[in-house]
Design a protein around this nucleic acid. Sequence first.
DNA 1: AATGCTGCTGCGAAGATTTGCAGGAGGCGA
DNA 2: TCGCCTCCTGCAAATCTTCGCAGCAGCATT
Lengths: 147, 147
Amino acid sequence: MSCEPEIAQAVRERGRRLTIQRAKILSALRHASDHQSAEQILERVRDNDPHADISLSTVYRTLETSTDLHLTSELRGASGISVYEWNDPDTTHHHLECRGCGATEEVDLSSLQIAEAEIRERAGFTADIRHLAIPGRCADCGPDAAG
Amino acid sequence: MSCEPEIAQAVRERGRRLTIQRAKILSALRHASDHQSAEQILERVRDNDPHADISLSTVYRTLETSTDLHLTSELRGASGISVYEWNDPDTTHHHLECRGCGATEEVDLSSLQIAEAEIRERAGFTADIRHLAIPGRCADCGPDAAG
DNA sequence: AATGCTGCTGCGAAGATTTGCAGGAGGCGA
DNA sequence: TCGCCTCCTGCAAATCTTCGCAGCAGCATT
């Protein structure tokens, strides 16, 4: 995989060690087309390399670390299962989660950059609004009565 | 508690049954000054009424239901423990979660209403942006280098 | 290439949340 | 007020995620 040096650099640049486990986990997520659960990522690692024997704990810890490093994003949706995705630095998008049917769709929202500025100004807080899970109801389900 | 009839009405109005458990759980959360974990809510219920014998499952299920009903909000923060709070219909606020020290602060953000409109227009999705958990770094911890 | 510091991993257990099932109770209609 | 239909609850097990600890392995330095 040609992007491994890139991952290696990104990890080391930020003062963390590049271990075999991290390389494989991040590479697997990097090449996934969409968000993946911890278990799915582990499956992918094993598919890529049947010799790989990585524990699920390490997958969780790697994902936590790489999210701190802004390499990946974690989404704790309503489903109860966290999913993770690789961060494309050039693209931000947000996840709309329908409470009716559970479907998710992605959307790019320029107005959230305004919110980042507002937060910095009002609270002195540097917000990282790149991957939000936004609840609501999709067009098919229609707005609900409550609220 | 004078607000119990109000809770009762809110639950029944939305086509759900008002059970003793729901009344006690929602009343406990309603009178809490800030967000509470499921376990904390159960403790409060027991403090209010030592005879109350409610299971933790019921607390979780009640909170899920009341969140669907927009009576409460659930926040799945980075801590790994979900917290819940009563929805004041007149106030919306969002939670800023510092990745450095773990502190959370609340902020009112008018710009997110713009985002709601943008989402409706672009995706036909009715977003419910009332209680978002927004990650970032607080003023004390300062912006980090990565990203 | 060898050494040492310290972060990282695997394992197992603990903690948090969800789920299946059988029985109990809320609220509508008679 | 009585009965019935469902929804709701409690329990226990399953599932998802985190944590503590002892040993291994990056990588900076020699």
